[in-house]
């Protein structure tokens, strides 16, 4: 594999984690437009723990994931009060606040960015991405996931049948944030330099796009979405000045004609022996 292909594949691995972080939160019916903030926290924390405190990267990534997850839980509680587009806007605000915080946070370099990380292999990145993907796929086959979906489909009914909807929604936020935190740490080690501008609104939106384009009903959806969105700008190079417009147009086409994303559960029904409980 050429280093170019390896670089793109590492990008896909990290994007996949970004997508999964949105995916698990979305599974409970909550849309977060601020996941880049969790990614930023993970990126800065993992970098600081290794560069300043000399921790091994794997341990630092775990800690970064935990810390982001904790922050996710903290954000998840007030998020309970909000639904739909209001939650989306509140998370957007949270994302912008976090970006502005790092912009002004001198110990992490502020606008000047942070460096000092060492290179990691694509295999290392994919080891994390693949394990977390498998983890989410396993989660999807668990009873807990049925509870996630139940909260998504009808929260009041879920409440009535005795599900702890608060724990489920806040937990999903925490889990998603933790995945985003790991993604951030890997991102920092893949790019070797981070600055607040890398974790803005457009990054949060990209993470949502991986899910919505790839498919929001199966965990492999974000995988496909991440692959397409990382490769598409490269494939559209021949359009030169118009490649962003072409990207926008393709995005609209997919949204119009594949609302459920390119992959959906229906496609898997024939392939899998397991009976899906389709709502």
């Amino acid at each position: 594999m050429s280093t170019y292909a390896a670089g793109l594949s590492a990008d896909i691995g990290i994007a996949l984690l970004g997508g999964l972080s949105v995916y698990v939160i979305l599974a409970t019916g909550q849309l977060s437009l601020g996941n880049a903030a969790f990614m930023a926290v993970g990126a800065y924390l993992a970098s600081a723990l290794t560069v300043y405190a000399g921790l091994p990267l794997t341990a630092a990534l775990m800690l970064a994931g935990l810390a982001s997850g904790f922050l996710g839980v903290l954000v998840g509680f007030p998020a309970l009060r909000l639904r739909g587009i209001y939650l989306a806007m509140a998370t957007l605000g949270f994302g912008e606040m976090t970006r502005s915080f790092f912009l002004d946070f001198a110990p992490a370099g502020g606008a000047g960015g942070f460096r000092g990380m060492g290179p990691v292999s694509t295999a290392y990145i994919w080891a994390w991405s693949a394990s977390l993907l498998v983890g989410v796929v396993l989660l999807e086959r668990s009873r807990l996931w049925l509870e996630f979906r139940a909260v998504n489909d009808d929260e009041r009914a879920a409440d009535l049948i005795g599900l702890n909807t608060t724990a489920i929604k806040v937990g999903a936020f925490g889990l998603g944030a933790a995945i985003a935190g790991v993604a951030g740490g890997l991102f920092a080690y893949h790019q070797l330099y981070i600055e607040p501008g890398m974790f803005g609104f457009d990054r949060s939106i990209e993470m949502v796009l991986y899910v919505v384009l790839g498919g929001s009903t199966v965990a492999v959806g974000p995988l496909l979405g991440a692959t397409l969105l990382v490769l598409l700008p490269e494939f559209l190079r021949f359009l030169a000045d118009w490649r962003l417009a072409a990207f926008g147009a393709l995005l609209i086409l997919v949204l119009l004609f594949r609302r459920q994303g390119i992959i959906d559960r229906g496609m898997f029904r024939g392939l899998s022996r397991r009976k899906w409980a389709t709502p």
């Binding site: 494939f235 021949f238 086409l253 004609f257 594949r258």
Partner: peptide, 17 residues
């Protein structure tokens, strides 16, 4: 229509490569 959309995007990709 969705197949059309897929076909169009695929053609676009192929044209690129």
């Amino acid at each position: 229509l969705s197949y059309w959309a897929a076909a169009i995007s695929a053609t676009a990709l192929m044209a690129g490569t």
